[in-house]
Design a binder for these strands. Structure first.
Length: 597
RNA sequence: GGCCCCGUGGUGUAGCGGUCUAACAUGCCACCCUGUCACGGUGGAGAUCAGGGGUUCAAAUCCCCUCGGGGUCGCCA
């Protein structure tokens, strides 16, 4: 090693030691006589003193040093002179007196600050990601990510799981997300696909008798990007044999509880994790990934408003829709401008508008509410009793603001979910130190695709139906619930899993229900179905998204901040400028010709 | 594919029809400085205001298009 210690580890115990350090110049303070260098490596920062009275050559070299120069320094660890200690620095009691030094490599002036935590244009950060990762924020995020993955490996190892790698070059399956394709050189006109997840592979490992499998698995989906979605992302892929839903849920709860308590002890959890059925969460929050850090639950007002004189409400219900609302506590004083902002939020989602009812501006009992205290365009169409009943159902008090949506059920739910999160954010109800994990289960197995008028799996093709619902597969498929569960946290879907189908006849039955021909099934899933005929155990699993978990633990709002080399929203890697053109020779080898369009 | 937001010295921001020959902070360069730690002091260099077109007597500022970035709907079994 070219260094004997790391900068950050030095303390009073090292006083008197002769050491060698190597790292980057974080800052230089040149006093003409004395020069101070803050030397940085991965572990931290230490002050080095260049005193011409101790070494003239060292002092001359130090005067050439600039930010981000890579330097090596040999010298002695010394206590700082009394009064010059720096309590802001972990190594602030000591300093290194340089006896020998050399510049290993100079550096151009960096395009942005390495030593300051200020916002920098993300394009620049990504283009110079290797400099960005030198900065504290990315360094800490990557360290946290490593600790999370390390914790997972240790935890599952102790539980008897083994990690098995599965191929990255597999077979394209048109269902689900769009595949990333890899052309085959040896097989003209044929393609591999990168895995969307190792789903079928891990099921085959269960048939193979592995019993407890996991993998920190890279997954690829060629879909549009979001703050929480990258084209390649990392899942903890996990599968177990001879289990039921409860086994996975309790394993997840123990894993994530102990993980947070180990890697982020300052964050708070709700224990045990709440469990909501799909129906419950949709009714109460309008989404299957609710932020449970705060209440503001949705109330269904359809029965109250069905007979009202307000045509917006009446016609929505007559058209098969719903009238639902939430209460924004203390927001009765919202200005026209603030109400417009809320209106805009729902309009962007495609809703025609939002009905607001401000319940007075003073504190007091709802019983004292009078028509004069109301502020709402809908007030003249509604009776005072109707408004009181609505307010009561939404848990409103005087001084609150009712936000009411009318229309198609899905749109109403989506808009109220959005409004709920907006109000939660504005009123600072979402504690940033809280991780509100929860399980959502009892999902419908299937949903009807309105366009194609075909049943589609809500989760995926291999989810087992609840035993008691199996008879409905033939008579009322919409009533069949799947053995599927999601884990959510703070409004994000963190994991999805299920107990799988483990017999070929039930799996074939599902395929038929989804409209596949026998030929299609054999071509695409023959390998899996045949495997089921060789003694497949009851099995199931789950796949938590590592990027999202680390994002939440790090307090970040997008997963690019916890990925070393992420892609932009247009799926471009700015560090390498990928994707890029390839040579004609490469195309010829792959039997490809580019289309003009 | 739709909608919304952003683009000003290296970096971060201000300026939002004329006083902009573009301001401030920091960084950079030079000189001074032996106890600083976001060192300090003096001086200096550094910007086709993303690109193109238009409106106007006059555009960083208003309008249109393009490019790039971000957020989101659709999409993501």
């Amino acid at each position: 090693m070219l260094k004997s210690h790391s900068c950050g580890e030095l303390n009073k115990e090292h006083v008197g030691a002769q050491i060698t350090l190597a790292g980057w110049v974080d800052r230089r303070r040149d006093h003409g006589g004395l020069i101070f260098i803050d030397l940085r490596d991965r572990e931290g920062i230490v002050q080095v003193v260049f005193n011409p009275g101790i070494s003239k050559p060292c002092h001359e070299i130090a005067s050439e040093m600039r930010s981000e120069y890579v330097v090596r320094i040999s010298g002695e660890v010394a206590l700082r002179p009394p009064g010059t200690e720096n309590p802001k620095l972990a190594t602030g009691d000591i300093e290194v007196i340089a006896h020998n030094t050399d510049i290993i490599n100079p550096s151009k002036t960096p395009p942005f600050y390495i030593n300051e935590d200020i916002e920098v244009d993300e394009n620049l950060r990504l283009q110079y990601r290797y400099l960005d990762i030198r900065r504290a924020r990315m360094k800490e995020n990557l360290l946290l990510r490593y600790r999370v993955v390390k914790f997972i490996r240790d935890f599952l190892d102790a539980k008897g799981f083994i990690e098995v790698e599965t191929p990255m070059l597999i077979k394209s399956t048109p269902e689900g997300a769009r595949d990333y394709l890899v052309p085959s050189r040896l097989h003209p006109g044929k393609f591999y696909a990168l895995p969307q997840s190792p789903q079928q592979l891990k099921q085959l490992l269960m048939v193979a008798g592995v019993e407890k499998y996991f993998q920190i698995a890279r997954c690829f989906r060629d879909e549009d990007l979001r703050a929480d979605r990258q084209p390649e992302f990392t899942q903890l892929d996990l599968e177990m044999s001879f289990i039921e839903e409860e086994d996975i849920l309790s394993l997840l709860e123990e894993l994530f509880t102990s993980m947070v308590e180990t890697v982020k002890p300052e964050m708070r959890l709700i224990k045990p994790f709440p469990r909501l059925t799909y129906t419950q969460t949709m009714e109460r929050y309008g989404t299957d990934k609710p932020d449970l850090r705060f209440g503001l639950e949705i109330g269904d007002l359809s029965d109250i408003t069905a007979q009202s004189d307000f045509s917006v409400f009446r016609s929505a219900i007559a058209g098969g829709g719903k009238v639902k609302g939430i209460c924004a506590p203390g927001c009765a004083t919202y200005t026209r401008h603030q109400l417009d902002e809320l209106n805009k939020i729902v309009k962007v989602l495609g809703a025609t508008g939002l009905t607001t009812i401000a319940l007075g501006t003073s504190v007091g009992s709802l019983d004292d509410l009078t028509v004069e205290m109301l502020r709402s365009v809908a007030a003249k169409f509604l009776t005072l009793d109707q408004i009181k009943e609505m307010a009561g159902r939404l848990g409103a008090k005087m001084g609150d603001l009712l936000l009411i949506m009318a229309g198609k059920s899905e749109l109403v739910d989506m808009a109220l979910d959005e409004l709920r999160r907006e109000i939660g954010y504005r009123l600072k109800l979402a504690d940033p130190k809280m991780l509100a994990f929860a399980f959502i289960w009892d999902y419908p197995l299937l949903e009807m695709n309105e366009k194609t008028e075909r049943w589609e799996p809500m989760h995926h093709l291999f989810t087992a139906p609840k035993d008691e619902d199996v008879p409905f597969l033939d008579t009322a498929p919409e009533r069949v619930r799947g053995k599927h569960y999601d884990m959510v946290c703070n409004g994000y879907e963190i994991a999805g899993g299920s107990i799988r189908i483990h017999t070929s006849h039930l799996q074939r039955k599902i395929f038929r229900l989804l409209g596949y021909t026998d030929e299609e099934v054999d071509e695409r899933f023959g390998h899996l179905l045949e495997a089921f005929d060789y003694g497949a155990p009851i099995h199931g699993g789950v796949a938590p998204g590592i990027d999202r978990i680390v994002m939440l633990l790090a307090g970040e709002e997008n997963i690019r901040e916890v990925i070393a080399f992420p892609k932009t929203q247009s799926a471009v890697d700015l560090t390498f400028n990928a994707p890029s053109s390839v040579t004609e020779e490469q195309l010829i080898e792959l039997h490809l010709r580019l289309r003009d369009d």
